[in-house]
Design a protein around this nucleic acid. Sequence first.
RNA 1: GCCCUGAUAGUUUAGUGGUAAAACAAACCCUUGGUAAGGGUUAGACUGUGAGUUCGAUUCUCACUCAGGGCUCCA
Length: 583
Amino acid sequence: MESHNLDKLRHSCAHLFAAAIKTLYPEAKLAIGPSISDGFYYDVDYGDISLSEADFPRIEQKMHEIVKKWTGFDKREVSYEDAKAFYQNNPYKLELIEEFNKNGEKITFFKSGDFEDLCQGNHAENPKENLKHFKLLSVAGAYWRGSEKNKMLTRVYGTVFPSKLELEDHLKRLEEAKKRDHRKLGRDLDLFAFSDLVGKGLPLWTSKGTTIKRVLERFIVDEELSREYEHVSTPPIAKVDLYRTSGHYPYYKETMYPPMKVDDEELILRPMTCPHHFALFKTRPRSYHEMPVRFAEISPQFRYEKSGELTGLIRVRTFLLTDAHIITPKEQAKKEILGVLDLIDYVNKALGLKAGVDYRYRLSLGDRKEDKKYYKDDAMWDYSENILREVLKNQKVPYFEAENEAAFYGPKIDVQMKNVNGKEDTAFTIQYDFVMPKRFELRFINKEGQEEEPVVIHRASLGAFERTIAFLIEHYGGSLPLWLSPVQVSILPISDKFQDYAGNIKSEMLKKGIRCEVNSQSKTLGAKIRETTLQKIPYMVIIGEKEQKDNVISVRTREGKDLGQITVAEFINKLKSQIENFS
RNA sequence: GCCCUGAUAGUUUAGUGGUAAAACAAACCCUUGGUAAGGGUUAGACUGUGAGUUCGAUUCUCACUCAGGGCUCCA
């Protein structure tokens, strides 16, 4: 079915849901019920009743009953007064009616069976026949009109398809996605864990998870050094004054951990690295000869995210960011941004991620009307937003623009990635900052011997390890590429007799930097292969009498491919070249 | 933070107003095997924490903690 028609079906299903609700809960006040990308939802104020998923079967049954009488959606135009009278007890619909009226839009009602709803149209034909294959999925709270200040309504999500088969397919896909969830794989593959005692949003990395972090860290640090970044180290704690100077304090007070009083000082766990790098920059005068200065750091940071915002490794309260600040003369900023984009492109290729498929670029813009949220300097906003736009256009990469997504100090280019649940988050970012240099009085001496104010490019090349690893786990369904796999090779001796030979092969590989282990359990080969495959270890080395006699090994991949017998040296060479190619 | 749901062994789940059952994982024993599960034995849970109701609570009630789905937020 065309997506246009699917939209109509979804929206019609929202009507049907509302009709069932009004039958079962006459006191409920309907708010809005749009179609969304995978189905529909309806926000309803149920008063004192609290709806839960346990009520779904009853509601679904009622929906099936009602739709039998629905032959179509009959439109009628209603006057402002009549509409208000019809919805006199429903503040949500009244608010919408007021708005339509103010904007000079016609007020229309659509009736199907006995149920009539304020609506602008777009419905399926012959609901009786076409509106059969639906399912209610979840209950959630949602603020009226999306504002935290408004009342929270109860939102029910549901989905609908033209055929039973398509509905089942969709539900199956949702199930499959759950299997790739990094939280499940993180436990099954022994990568990370959480502890009630340690606290929420504070991940504990196992040795395997730590290996992934270390490999990524070495990769990015080496790459950045080759691109003329200076890797520095600054403390993860600092005086609150530092953040007052930077201007972060008033903007982000809510997401910072509260200050610790020590003697006469107030210290804070850092929620970002920028002011530390600026302070380092200012420890001595800087000449244009050494510009741009590119300070990079693998930086631990701490943010007090609201409890409901935490999600596995994707949103945590402490994380390790591949941070950097490029302090550059304004006229070189564009070139530097291009350099960062090139680095990010390189990183994504190494990680095996494709633009447009696995991630997309977002140009995150400010809002000239939001003076509280964004630093007021319209000319600078225009200028910097244009630079970022030009850069993206030059790179010929697809991107989209998003209003009201900038940092308070300037616009950004964000690399957005989706998790298994379809939720998109920023993985990597490049930010243009024209505010901090002023606040920190950053200066360098230019060719003319004059003090000049630079601009700052904030960037995260590989993002936060936590979030990036979460995306990678889900992207690969746990089967990480060889170079990132915590255990690259598992040696499976066919019986205890070959333990010594297995041990020798292991030390030989460890010496060459291959991460391997011996599976010395007293189990059949079949059982060991199964276990190793489930642990998603890329290669299995199987050794028995034949191998020992000929001084070779047999190799099998986690995909089940038999690579036959080769020498250990050959195998190591093969692994090495594969690792070098990030595959 | 707000709305909804949930928490039983390492994991996945069962169950009951009278202190809990299973599978997989683990340990040990037998087996020494050839490309996705060999067999047996044992151990492992004060049923998330604290309080209340009750003769008695894992079960009912409340609070807290943590987790999940949303909303808001996301430097």
